[in-house]
């Protein structure tokens, strides 16, 4: 019985995969001696050496571009972009290059590359450090988008990502890195992509979320239970692939749905979920689908983020309103 938090689970997954496969390597800013700004790669340099744990120059595009080339050479790179918001400095190497290389080469080459990127608000970080831009990558077919919400999933999904022959963007919820420990076994295990988890079952409203917003939904579910509203919580785990079946069947049982995400409302992945439910679960719906998201404004300075981000109160309010309709 080993208890780990999200950060320790990620560190453990990296260590185990590097121990299993000598071609797995980690590269990025400050991943070596410092062990990453959050210490996710702590101890890896000492154990696996400077050839496989590499502090790169401060240039995100070359971190991703070089990872593509490393993968073609036979290495298995796990690249860290220090914060997801800084993928803007590398976007042209992710969507148009990494994601498309299998297609462009008509299957001759593929890119077994994992990009790890912490993100999310609520930790009073500077500009660009909190932006939830995951939906931008959903529009780049060829890359998978993975959003773990707890320590157990963090390890299993990361090992799955490293072993996946295709590129994976693995977004880490930095706000809950150290929030709580749970049992995360030693030894490798994987969680398949495209399988959402129903982590709480109730009869009245289905809450759909991913990453740190799942924790918000669980807190809201507790409060709603006090009001006599019983809630199902679906943790999507991956946006690409998107597990339509689990979401549709959960919503079919409750007839009501609230989607919760930290990304801005318009064009967020919640819109995709709502549109999918409207076409696949229309006759099971007893109320309009609600969305609780960040507002359509640039991520604000730290003193304002509590008003910008979805809160337990907003989730509770949306679920109550949906339940009354």
């Amino acid at each position: 019985m080993t208890q780990r938090n999200v950060l320790e689970a990620i560190n453990n997954a990296l260590d185990e995969e590097m121990s299993r496969d000598p071609n797995v390597m980690v590269l990025g800013l400050d991943v070596g001696k410092l062990g990453g700004v959050f210490r996710a790669t702590s101890g890896l340099l000492e154990k696996h050496g400077a050839q496989r744990v590499v502090d790169t120059p401060l240039a995100e595009a070359s971190i991703i571009g070089a990872s593509l080339g490393l993968a073609i050479s036979g290495m298995v790179p796990v690249a860290e972009i220090q914060f997801l918001g800084f993928t803007a400095q590398a976007f042209h190497q992710i969507g148009p290059q990494l994601a498309r290389y299998r297609t462009r080469s008509r299957g001759r080459f593929h890119c077994q590359v994992t990009i790890r990127a912490p993100f999310g608000g609520g930790i009073s970080s500077p500009e660009f450090h909190s932006d939830a831009v995951e939906a931008q990558f959903v529009q780049s077919p060829g890359i998978k988008v993975v959003m773990p919400s707890n320590p157990y999933d963090a390890k299993g999904l990361l090992i799955e990502a490293i072993r996946d022959p295709d590129p994976v963007l693995y977004c880490e919820p930095d706000r809950i890195y150290r929030l709580a420990r749970m049992e995360v076994p030693d030894g490798a295990y994987t969680i398949p992509f495209g399988k959402a988890a129903v982590i709480r079952e109730g009869a009245d409203v289905t809450l759909v979320a991913w990453s740190a917003a799942v924790e918000l939904c669980l807190l809201a579910a507790g409060r709603l239970a006090d009001d006599g509203i019983s809630v199902t919580v679906v943790d999507l785990r991956t946006l690409v692939p998107f597990d339509v079946e689990t979401v549709v069947s959960a919503v079919a049982r409750t007839g009501r749905c609230v989607v919760v995400h930290e990304a801005p409302l318009s064009g967020g992945f919640g819109a995709e979920i709502a549109a999918t439910l409207a076409s696949e679960a229309f006759y099971d719906l007893d109320a309009p689908i609600a969305r609780v998201a960040a507002y359509d404004v640039p991520y604000p300075a730290a003193p304002l983020e509590a008003w910008y981000l979805p809160s337990v109160e907003r989730v509770v309010a949306a679920a109550r309103k949906t339940a009354r309709q």
Partner: peptide
Amino acid sequence: LPHAVGLAWG
């Protein structure tokens, strides 16, 4: 060009 560098490095 970054692809070429990664390939050569690997």
